[in-house]
């Protein structure tokens, strides 16, 4: 017994080292699987608050670009207003209304929450953002995040007032995407080299691709609204080993200057999840 204590005393520093090392590594390796940890909650709030203060100053430097992007979006939205369109003159035509129920009435699937980006990075290999919206505002993990130009990322962790978003510029980010014209189904990821470009792979060579084609989110995704721009084809590479293209695409959102985002809630998500569960059970 005495020897055990002597041993512990002699190697106490080494044991302390091993304990701290183990603690750090266990945090690191459990983080990738379970994003929601007690540490995550705490650090979200602390780091988020500090970042918010600095961001208040920093946001002045990109104001003009933000204004421009918002003006463009406003213009796009204004064009949807009824006052912007003219009703065709039908007074001299006979129109028989045979449908009693308004079959054209749409119901809402996606709800948008406005959120301010309080911290963002582009220079790391695993780039995340912090948004100033959290569980108190109804945000849950796995929601889509879109910017003024297009897709930004996915919510991965939520605390009371902040949420962490895995941006498209993350080595582990994978988004199913289609070409707007050719509609070949592919996968958008990031090779970690240049934050202005993403990589679209798995598009079959049978699809005709041209430079400048728009890459949009897939209609089969259950979290991203379909048809949302992700990027524009910049360079076309033939993958020699497989029968697919490897396309270099320019991001639709300027990740250097992005400051505001919309978190998208899929109102049919719960129903979809339940439906999926019944299939998996059987």
């Amino acid at each position: 017994m005495r020897n055990v204590f002597l041993f512990l005393k002699r190697y106490s520093v080494f044991i302390f080292f091993l304990v701290l090392q183990g603690l750090a590594l266990s945090m690191l390796f459990s983080y990738n699987r379970f994003h929601q940890t007690a540490y995550g909650m705490f650090s979200n709030e602390v780091a988020g608050n500090v970042n918010k203060r600095v961001n208040n100053v920093e946001s002045f430097f990109t104001l003009s670009e933000q204004n421009k992007a918002l003006r463009q979006q406003n213009a796009a939205l204004l064009s949807y207003l009824p006052s912007g369109s003219v009703i065709p003159d039908t007074s001299f035509q006979l129109v028989a209304d045979t449908v009693a129920v308004d079959s054209l009435k749409a119901y809402r699937q996606y709800q948008y929450f406005d959120a301010k980006i309080i911290s963002n990075s582009v220079f790391l290999q695993q780039n995340n953002m912090v948004l100033h919206r959290g569980s108190a505002q109804g945000i849950v993990p796995n929601m889509a995040v879109v910017g003024t130009g297009g897709l930004i990322g996915t919510v991965i962790s939520v605390s009371e007032n902040m949420s962490i978003v895995m941006s498209l510029l993350h080595r582990q980010s994978k988004v199913i995407a289609v070409l707007k014209k050719g509609s070949g189904l592919g996968e958008v990821s990031w090779d970690g080299k240049d934050p202005r470009f993403l990589v679209l792979s798995k598009i079959p060579k049978t699809v005709v691709v041209k430079k400048g084609d728009t890459v949009v989110s897939s209609p089969y995704s259950d979290k991203f609204p379909p048809g949302l721009p992700i990027g524009y084809v910049e360079k076309i590479d033939q993958d020699q080993e497989t029968n697919t293209y490897k396309l270099k695409i320019r991001t639709a959102v300027d990740f250097y200057a992005v400051q505001h985002a919309y978190i998208v809630k899929n109102l049919l998500q719960e129903e979809m999840d339940q439906l999926k569960k019944t299939v998996i059970k059987e």
Partner: peptide
């Protein structure tokens, strides 16, 4: 050791990689 661990954890909060810099 303890100070370094704390410093690493603080850096991790802002890099959003829990434990990486601390280790």
């Amino acid at each position: 050791l303890f100070i370094s661990f704390a410093a690493g954890m603080l850096a991790d909060m802002f890099f959003k990689t829990p434990g990486l810099h601390a280790a």
